[in-house]
Simulated scan of single mutants.
Amino acid sequence: MTFGFDLDLLRTFVAVVDSGGFTRAAERVHLTQSTVSLQIKKLETNIGQTLLLRDRSTGGVRMTESGELLLSYARRLLLTAEEASEAMRRPSAPKTVRLGVPEDFAGRRLIGLLSGFSAASPHLRLDTISGWSAELRRLLDGGEIDLALIKREPGDGACLASWTEEVIWVEGAARAVEADPVPLAVFPVGCIYRDRAIRALERSGRRWRIAYTSQGLMGVQAAVASGLGISLLPSDAVLPEHRVLSAAQGFEPQPSSELALVKGQSKLSAEARALGAFLIDSLAP
């Protein structure tokens, strides 16, 4: 014969054992003594075993061998039930915040940010989407992301915060490349560094050609290091394998660009505001 355990009966049983008697157990579980006695009798009837014996010398109770065996299971069942109840009281899923980041955002820098946010806000889930500035703005306008870090020209619209980014001409350190026309290693159309490089060369009257294109920062960095082309990169993306070019080589210094934290038109949730505050604090010089 099989039967299920009634958690209320098990709770009363454990209370009687822990308190040493029916009277004190009744106080603990907020029942009358007679109700406690009836519940213990019902539990014994259900399992077909005597669990407790009255100790006439002390006025308390003592467990039988069956009672001792059941006690350990009863404690585990009650603990599991409490854990399940607590889990059901929690939200079914963490609140999600969606962040757009530039394709050329340095990987190590992003890893540091994500690790810091995870430690500071373990109750939040962070989803990141990478893209170029135009794409990130479209996602913001469509409400598909909450916040975005965008590379742009300084002062190009409202933002929650902004940081200056120095940009530098670089070529491979191992060997100089033929610079007529200037071979460019660049990101796809829509990237501020690509636009800046082309406009600067055209203003100086120099010819140029696209020698290499990559969606990711690592690809452009590698192309420059291997001598495939020249590029205009943020200073934190310059590698030891790169050589900085100056006006002496015909590459005039360029004004700084800007990394801006922007939001869409809708009101930010408390979770998105928390992410924004974290980014503002973490990206400060």
Rank of each mutant, 00 (worst) to 15 (best):
Q39Y: 07
Q39W: 01
Q39H: 10
Q39N: 10
Q39D: 09
I40E: 00
I40G: 06
L43D: 01
L43F: 05
E44R: 09
E44I: 12
E44S: 13
T45I: 03
T45L: 06
T45W: 06
T45M: 05
T45C: 01
N46D: 14
N46V: 14
N46A: 11
I47Y: 04
I47F: 05
I47L: 15
G48L: 04
G48Q: 07
G48V: 12
Q49G: 09
Q49T: 05
Q49A: 14
Q49V: 00
T50W: 00
T50E: 04
L52Y: 01
L52R: 09
L53A: 02
R54P: 08
R54E: 15
D55Q: 10
R56F: 15
R56N: 11
S57Q: 12
S57K: 12
S57R: 11
S57L: 15
S57F: 14
T58M: 08
T58K: 10
G59F: 04
G59P: 08
G59S: 13
G59W: 00
G60W: 02
G60V: 07
G60Y: 03
V61L: 03
V61I: 15
V61Q: 13
V61Y: 09
R62D: 08
R62T: 13
T64P: 10
T64V: 04
E65Y: 02
E65C: 03
E65Q: 03
S66G: 00
S66H: 09
S66F: 06
G67H: 07
G67N: 05
G67V: 05
G67D: 01
G67P: 00
G67M: 02
E68V: 09
E68K: 13
E68N: 10
L69G: 02
L69W: 11
L71K: 04
L71S: 03
L71C: 06
L71A: 07
L71T: 01
S72Q: 12
S72K: 05
S72M: 02
A74P: 00
A74N: 01
R75F: 11
R75S: 00
R75V: 04
R75K: 15
R75Q: 13
R75P: 07
R75M: 09
R76Q: 13
R76H: 03
L77K: 07
L77W: 12
L78E: 01
L78T: 05
L79T: 03
L79V: 03
L79E: 12
A81Q: 03
E82T: 04
E82N: 02
E82I: 00
E82F: 01
E83M: 09
E83K: 08
E83V: 05
A84C: 07
A84P: 02
A84Q: 05
S85R: 13
S85Y: 04
S85G: 10
S85F: 03
E86K: 12
E86V: 10
A87T: 14
A87I: 13
M88G: 12
M88H: 09
M88P: 01
R89M: 14
R90Y: 01
P91W: 08
P91Y: 07
P91K: 15
P91N: 14
P91M: 09
S92N: 13
S92Y: 13
A93Q: 15
K95F: 07
K95V: 15
T96K: 12
T96F: 01
